[in-house]
Amino acid sequence: MSEKTAKERIGITSTIPVEIIYASQCVPVDLNNIFITDKHPQVIVDEAERLGLPRNTCTWVKGMYSVLKHTDIHTVIGVVQGDCTHIVSMLESLLPAGVEFIPFSFPYEKSRKLLRWEMQKIMDYFGVQWDDCLASKARLDEVRKIIHTIDRMTWEDNTVSSQDNFYALINSTDFMGNPEAFKIQLKRILDKKREPYPRSHLRFGLLGVPTVFTDLYPYLESQGARVVYHEVARQFAMPEYAKDLLEQNLSYTYPYSFYGRVKDIQEEAGLRHLDGFIHYVQSFCHHQLEDLGFREQLSLPILTLEGDRVGKLDGRTKTRLDTFVQMLKSKKRRKEDAFRN
């Protein structure tokens, strides 16, 4: 190991081959998760604005910025290609404050050679070898196996809530800094005994980045709908986890071409018998442009929701959700009537 001390917390701005950090005995911390699981996430965002970040910057970036201002995390691996276009500027602005910024890129052209080089760069930084990383991959794959079981129980058995599904998937970016403790949390989800959700519930796929709404899932359930597919969060959990480390990170769809994501979405939509998609877009995020592509490429109905500040669903967003749910239920009823007749 290089200059890093064991157990040092290393910030990450998005999913990276986190096996490398675990191999080094350091602790990965997804800055997004620290921010959104805080008791008062919006206070954190407001603080970033007071410190000078523009109002028209994505909430996730503002949240990470504030987190870095107030924690003991001094080293950050920032994903500079394949995620957010604001990361470089945000992390550079923290260099004078003593934050060390290590850039990591997922090459757009999905080149093995380039990705291997990027991973090697991070391994060299931490002073670890490929074999060390493969050992930590085996450790993490044990946890991923449980996450994928939870995901399957969500869409196939219909016995896991959208909220628990999301919790399991989203925390796979950093395994909450402690894979064994995370495994215990996941087993609690597995052990929850619940009746399957009614077959009449609409089945949605949630596309795009994680939302900042705090009550989306209970609200959808109150309307007779649930999310049985989290497109991006599922990718964080590396559904192709059985392959080698390099292959795993090439199979991960989110950082590469949009059309790779579309292919994955189409396959999962069929498998999971989806009724429609909710495409979540964050205000001021470049991913908003992908809405056009989804509408061109996907055949199921799509509702686009935009969120800015962290909090409960506002009246206008509820109106959209209500209309979408009612529209799809009425379509479904007609289809079933036509089939019966």
């Binding site: 205000s283 109905p301 686009t304 935009e306 800015d308 206008r316 109106t319 959209r320 209309t323 979408f324 529209m327 009425s330 379509k331 007609r334």
Partner: peptide, 20 residues
């Protein structure tokens, strides 16, 4: 709000609402 809905044979097929 400005809302647009595509109506087909007595049913809303799709809709769009101005946002933010």
């Amino acid at each position: 709000d400005t809302k647009v809905a595509l109506v087909r044979d007595g049913q809303v097929e799709d809709f769009s609402v101005n946002d933010k």
